[in-house]
Simulated scan of single mutants.
Amino acid sequence: MMEQTIELIFQWGGAAFGIAGAGLLSSNVRLSPYGWLLFLVSSVQLCIYAVLIQAWGLLALNACFVCTNFNGIWRCLMPYLRARKNGCTDGTPEAAR
């Protein structure tokens, strides 16, 4: 029973964070770059879930998603955070130049 509960937490947690990340990124608002962090949490949770249920294809897919999420964090979130640190009020790197 406890094992089923843990599996459900990772399964539905991964789904919820993935949906929230997709919604945030697709909304194209000031905080959209944070969607990559939500995607990362989702992918890690789904990797754990895949290991628990021994779904190796799902694990491979989400391991690749972890890599693409780090790429999104590096290419989108980090420039956003640097621009904010440099005093840009809207967070876009172009406005900070």
Results as ranks from 00 to 15, higher is better:
69 N>K: 08
86 N>I: 10
78 M>N: 04
61 L>G: 08
92 T>R: 06
57 G>K: 04
45 Q>N: 12
84 R>Q: 12
71 N>K: 11
65 F>C: 07
84 R>V: 01
66 V>K: 05
91 G>C: 14
48 I>K: 00
88 C>V: 05
51 V>K: 05
89 T>E: 03
95 A>K: 06
63 A>D: 02
81 L>S: 06
56 W>R: 13
75 R>L: 14
45 Q>A: 15
90 D>L: 06
45 Q>W: 13
66 V>C: 05
84 R>Y: 00
47 C>Q: 08
80 Y>V: 00
72 G>N: 11
56 W>A: 12
79 P>Q: 10
47 C>V: 10
55 A>Q: 00
82 R>Q: 12
58 L>P: 01
91 G>I: 04
92 T>S: 07
47 C>E: 04
83 A>F: 06
80 Y>I: 03
50 A>V: 01
79 P>F: 06
86 N>G: 14
45 Q>S: 15
75 R>S: 11
69 N>R: 08
70 F>R: 05
87 G>N: 12
56 W>I: 10
72 G>E: 07
56 W>N: 14
64 C>N: 10
48 I>F: 01
78 M>R: 10
46 L>D: 06
72 G>C: 08
60 A>I: 03
50 A>P: 03
44 V>I: 15
81 L>E: 06
52 L>A: 01
67 C>K: 14
76 C>K: 15
77 L>P: 07
90 D>C: 15
92 T>F: 05
65 F>M: 13
79 P>A: 07
84 R>M: 13
93 P>A: 14
63 A>R: 05
75 R>C: 07
63 A>E: 07
94 E>W: 00
65 F>T: 10
75 R>W: 07
72 G>S: 10
73 I>K: 08
56 W>Q: 11
80 Y>N: 04
55 A>K: 08
48 I>N: 01
88 C>K: 06
